[in-house]
C-alpha cells in the first residue's frame, strides 16, 4: 500500500513563511459601447439606460437587449424605488466602521433593472418601496461615484 502522510511540525519556530503579492491590481477595464455612454452620461449628471423593442428602458445599459436585438440609449428620468437594502456596520475582519454604510438596490420607476448605491436616508425611515432620487456630485469624472447617493 502507499506511504501515508508525513509527521507534522507543531512548534511555530520550525515553520517558515514568506510574504507574497498578487500582481493583479492594475487593470484597464473596457465598459463596452453602451457602458461608455453610461459613463459619459454620469459626467453630464444623467443616468442613461437602453430602450429596447419592448418599449422598456433597461439600466445599466448593456449593448444588447434581453431579446438579443440592439438597444438605443435613453435617459432615465423620474423617481427610483428601493427594492432592497442593507446596512454595513462591520468589515470582513470584524472592525466596526466609523459610520454605517446604507446601501440599496434601486430601480427606476420608469425603467427596468437598477443600480446598487448608497442611500442617504435615516436608518429608521428606510424601507422597501421607498421612493428616492439620485443626487450628483458637482465635480464629475464619469464613474458610478459621480452619484453622491440616492435620497
Amino acid at each position: 500500500m502507499m506511504d501515508m502522510s508525513f509527521e507534522k511540525k507543531g512548534r511555530l519556530e520550525d515553520i517558515v513563511v514568506w510574504p507574497g503579492d498578487q500582481e493583479v491590481d492594475k487593470f484597464v477595464y473596457t465598459p463596452g459601447i453602451h457602458g461608455t455612454e453610461f459613463a459619459k452620461g454620469l459626467k453630464d449628471g444623467k443616468i442613461l439606460g437602453m430602450k429596447c423593442k419592448d418599449g422598456k428602458v433597461y439600466v445599466p445599459p448593456l449593448t444588447f437587449c434581453p431579446d438579443f436585438s440592439k438597444g438605443e440609449i435613453a435617459e432615465i428620468e423620474g423617481d427610483w424605488v428601493v427594492i432592497t437594502y442593507t446596512i454595513v456596520y462591520e468589515d470582513m475582519y470584524g472592525n466596526f466602521l466609523e459610520k454605517p454604510k446604507v446601501i440599496g438596490f434601486l430601480k427606476p420607476v420608469n425603467g427596468e433593472g437598477g443600480l446598487i448605491h448608497y442611500l442617504n436616508v435615516p436608518i429608521e425611515k428606510i424601507n422597501i418601496g421607498l421612493t428616492v432620487r439620485p443626487v450628483f456630485k458637482e465635480e464629475r469624472v464619469g464613474n458610478i461615484n459621480d452619484i453622491k447617493y440616492f435620497e
Binding site: F27, Y29, V88, D91, M92, P100, I103, I116, Y118, I144
Partner: peptide, 14 residues
C-alpha cells in the same frame, strides 16, 4: 468593476 466596485460599501459581503 464599473457599477459596484468603485463604491465603498465597507464590506464586500454587503
Amino acid at each position: 468593476p464599473q457599477y459596484i466596485r468603485p463604491l465603498e460599501p465597507g464590506n464586500p459581503l454587503f
